Simulated assay, not measured.
Amino acid sequence: MEAKKVAEIATSAGEILLSNGAEAYRVEETIKKICSSYGFNGECISTSTGIFISISDQEGEFVTSVKRINLRRVDLYRVELINSFSRGLAENPLPYEEAKNKLREIYNAPNFSLGIRLLAAGLTAFSYAIFFNGGILDALVSLLISFGIYLLLEYISKIGSFQFLEYYLSGFIIGAVSLAIGSFFPQINKDNVITGAIIVLLPGVALTNGIKDLLYGDYVSGFAKLGEAILIIVAMSVGIVTALSIFMKWF
């Protein structure tokens, strides 16, 4: 197979990995493994927003590929599919068209339905509200708020906006609604409600991957992911503090 086609396969696989929450070292190792499966020596540098690939062919010529990643989310199912794909290539290198079709199937793999994701978000908020000494009523309110916040983020992400604004508004709504409900229903503790509701927003995967990248020596990608996680936490915290500062005198 031509080096250009191998670079295209490797770039597509790396794009799926990076856009779905994989660590930088995983992207680089997978791309090198794919190149090696076809008998080429490939080098890769992965950052949080892009992939740079260079492959040398038998004549010593180099093929370079660059791919910028604009949209990023967390979908470990697709990450696992690409891992299986790269391991399969090591044992049985697929023809170009077959490999591209396989990658297209992985890219278009169905997501969990909105109802399942809402249920997961709600149960997560409910569980953490209980875990941090909240009562059943606190947990139920956290569950309902997390439903609304998840739907809000789904809507805002589709129309496009600054990430800081998304999480600022989410934090503001959590703080305002928790304070209002806690004032009308004294048996509900607003602090426990806020604790449960914000769990859905916390960037746990980004924090973990950032630390793992740093431990593997990928400092650019590691600090970028940690910076993104800190930005989310700050935006959410500022939103909650703003809501509490504004509405505390009213309720």
Rank of each mutant, 00 (worst) to 15 (best):
I82V: 06
G160A: 11
I199V: 11
A129S: 04
N133E: 13
F147K: 04
I116K: 13
S221P: 11
T208I: 15
N101P: 13
I136T: 12
V74W: 06
L169N: 08
M248H: 12
A243Q: 02
P186Q: 03
I211W: 09
E8N: 03
R73H: 06
L89N: 00
L226K: 09
A22G: 12
T208M: 14
S245A: 13
E43L: 09
S37K: 01
I232G: 04
F40N: 00
I149C: 06
I211K: 08
V177M: 02
S161E: 13
V241K: 14
S36F: 02
G88T: 00
A197V: 01
L179V: 08
N70G: 07
W250S: 11
S161A: 09
L89S: 00
E91P: 05
I211G: 10
V63S: 09
S46N: 14
L202T: 14
K225P: 12
A224M: 09
A129F: 01
G135C: 05
D75M: 07
L202D: 05
A206W: 08
N101C: 06
K4I: 12
L144Q: 04
Y77D: 12
T124V: 04
G14W: 06
A229I: 08
G134T: 03
C35W: 00
I106E: 03
A90R: 04
L165G: 15
I69F: 09
D213G: 15
L207I: 14
A176F: 15
S86Q: 06
Q187S: 15
R68Q: 14
A22L: 10
G39T: 01
I45K: 14
R104M: 11
F147P: 02
A3E: 04
F185K: 03
L152P: 05
G160W: 09
K158Y: 14
N83V: 10
I149Q: 03
Y216Q: 15
G122L: 05
G227C: 06
T242L: 06
F62Q: 13
V205P: 08
G182Y: 03
I194M: 02
F164D: 11
I130D: 04
E43I: 06
I188P: 00
L244W: 08
S54Y: 10
G148W: 03
G210H: 09
N20C: 10
G42D: 02
M236N: 07
S19K: 04
S19C: 07
A90W: 02
I232S: 08
S237P: 06
A99C: 01
I69V: 15
D57Y: 08
I31A: 03
P203G: 05
F62P: 10
Y150T: 12
N101D: 15
R117K: 14
G60D: 08
E61T: 10
